[in-house]
Nucleic acid binder design. Structure first.
Lengths: 189, 189
DNA sequence: TTAGTTGCAAACTCTTTGCACGAGG
DNA sequence: CCTCGTGCAAAGAGTTTGCAACTAA
């Protein structure tokens, strides 16, 4: 209950920000903002966001989702993330720098706020280049512990390799006997 | 001349990597790789890469560019960058971690290799999350010195604000007297 | 010779936009 | 009442893919 009240308060703050900037507080915007706040860790894309929002109001259209997301981003209230999937993911912004460690093999994302020490260090690096950075998400690609172990094992017996992030798995090249056509990159494709 | 020979040698290395992985060394791939190497700092997108490559062989098609770029990326020879422009940019990879400082106002990119100290620090942070990171580019959004000065000036007399990276400029909200239709976000739009 | 590669054009996916209707202030 | 916002469908933009012709090995 307390949580729900906190959430309501937070939603009100976002709506107030929107209104005080001269935009209208519509029910659709309210639903989309609440959906984003309730699913902070999920990094939904536009389609997922639409489906979640439609549980509250089935009449909401995809165009409204995109327009709301653009509005929030323009107001620096929303972070965009791009995992080279061919679409964008969205996440409510706060005043912190976030780090996303994205496993190029299994696609899992480890999500953490940079502590102030890390954040200040990055600010300092930016400062050396004359830049003043803003709150945002840094996507860092790598391989998680689990996949690293799996990859080591596979590489011993075969020449698998990491395929591109879009695939999200690892595959092998030079796969024999596939005949004409596209080379199969991924074990799971 | 010496530079040209170094370049040729480098191109040969890439082609050799491709061939030893069981792929064919075609003239199109050679041209695309050379184009990428000769324009390291430019971060071309697929269209730009096509146009540059077509100066050497006008028959090259966009599909070949995309397929070559996918091949190189799958082999970890190419970095993808995404500046939220709606398309990807490409850059030959090396064994270093790179930092791109991208100005959200004017769109300029300050491109630097992370020195080993920075790189090791980031590796360490990844390690804390159980990740082993790979050579890549980190996109860091911010505002460059020049735009910061301009922005400060404007903000004193008006309520401009940063608009989304896709726009690449700053605009204002609550712009009066625009009548029906889409709100103008950007001074330059 | 044979299987991988290319260019073309069509298909696909995600995102944006024009328009008439609806709704917030 | 006057705009801004919405839903729909169509348009746009970037990327992928099927196919017949071509080519590296």
């Amino acid at each position: 209950m307390a949580e729900k009240q906190d959430m309501d308060k937070l939603v009100q703050q976002y709506l107030e920000a929107i209104r005080s900037a001269g935009f209208r507080m519509t029910n659709q915007r309210k639903i989309i903002i609440e959906t984003l706040l309730k699913n902070m860790g999920d990094h939904p894309n536009a389609q997922e966001l639409l489906e979640m929002a439609q549980k509250r109001d089935p009449s909401i259209g995809i165009a409204t989702v995109y327009r709301t997301v653009e509005l929030l981003n323009n107001m620096d209230l929303l972070n965009l993330t791009n995992l080279q999937e061919g679409f964008r993911r969205y996440e409510m912004a706060d005043d912190n720098l976030h780090l996303h460690f994205y496993c190029r093999c299994c696609g899992s994302v480890y999500h953490t706020s940079a502590d102030k020490e890390k954040e200040n260090l990055i600010r300092q690096w930016a400062g050396e280049a004359g830049f003043k950075i803003m709150p945002q998400v840094l996507e860092i690609f790598g391989i998680c512990e689990k996949c690293q172990a799996e990859l080591d094992e596979i590489q011993e017996e075969d020449h698998f390799f990491r395929c591109n992030p879009r695939c999200g798995r690892f595959g092998r090249w030079n796969d024999p006997g596939q005949g004409r056509g596209r080379r199969r990159w991924c074990r799971n494709a």
